[in-house]
Design a protein around this nucleic acid. Structure first.
Lengths: 140, 140
DNA sequence: GCTGCATCCTCTAGTCACTAGAGGAGCAAG
DNA sequence: CTTGCTCCTCTAGTGACTAGAGGATGCAGC
């Protein structure tokens, strides 16, 4: 098991060095052994764990959810309903975010399209923001 | 011009009381005059400005962008290319966010669908997070 | 052995846009 | 006069990092 420096594991996992130290600080990644010169020495297990974390963060999972997922991963004989639940919750959240962004997109398109670059006094962008009734979607 | 208390303007603008004080602190909303008992007294102008801010925040504009938009609104004889530019930037950002969320949605759906609630050892959710090659979208 | 440079260490403080809470004062109704 | 609501200021906390100071270590070339 070749030892990896923090810089090396950072390149391989594509997680920045200060972020790795931060993960150690909050207890997401175990504190690794140190070299004689006090440098962190990581192994293959750490690289897998860090990749797992990065991947989950990319997918929008919060640190707390990842903590649960990692505990689950460490005990593979438990039923996985909890992991499934976390993913399902995330999916619902993502669906909602997409929907509201689609509404926002329409609104912004109406703003941008309607303005002929004359002067602020007649600008659609400002107008729509100032007067809620000009919105396409009144619910917000 | 009837004076509004901070609670009243909060209800009418649907911006929370501490948030209004925060906006005053960062100079987004001018400090209003005070009553004899040192309470803030707002007018119709403040309500309009606050509604503008809330609306823009709802649409995902950052405080700094809103600051620019407000300055623009205060001088209505300027050309509005800048306001239009801010909205266009926001639109591009929203488009990108929607796209990445759609990819994420697919990924999560594959996770959630593939797991029959047996045990963590065979859970799709954990597997996909641990092993990047099981992803639908390899680019992240 | 020495120099120079990259990498590493710890620690503190800053980011964004609020939110929470302490501790106290004002105000209107009963 | 008391109760309960709203208001005041101030400080500190949130999440997930990021930036920077100030110093130690490690290694390649001369």
């Amino acid at each position: 098991m070749t030892d990896l420096s923090i810089g090396e594991i950072s390149r391989q996992s594509r997680v920045k060095v200060p972020t790795i130290r931060y993960y150690e600080q909050i207890g997401l990644l175990p504190a690794p052994p140190r070299s004689e010169g006090n440098r962190r020495l990581y192994g293959a297990r750490d690289l897998r764990r860090l990749s797992f974390i990065r991947h989950a963060r990319d997918l929008g999972f919060e640190i707390d959810a990842i903590r649960t997922l990692l505990t689950l991963q460490d005990n593979p004989n438990q039923p996985c309903a909890e992991a499934d639940g976390i993913a399902r919750d995330k999916l619902a959240e993502v669906d909602a975010r997409i929907e509201s962004l689609m509404a926002l997109k329409e609104e912004l398109e109406a703003m941008v399209g309607g303005c002929g670059h004359r002067c602020v006094g007649e600008c659609r962008v400002i107008e729509v923001l100032a007067d809620h009734h000009k919105c396409l979607h009144a619910e917000h």
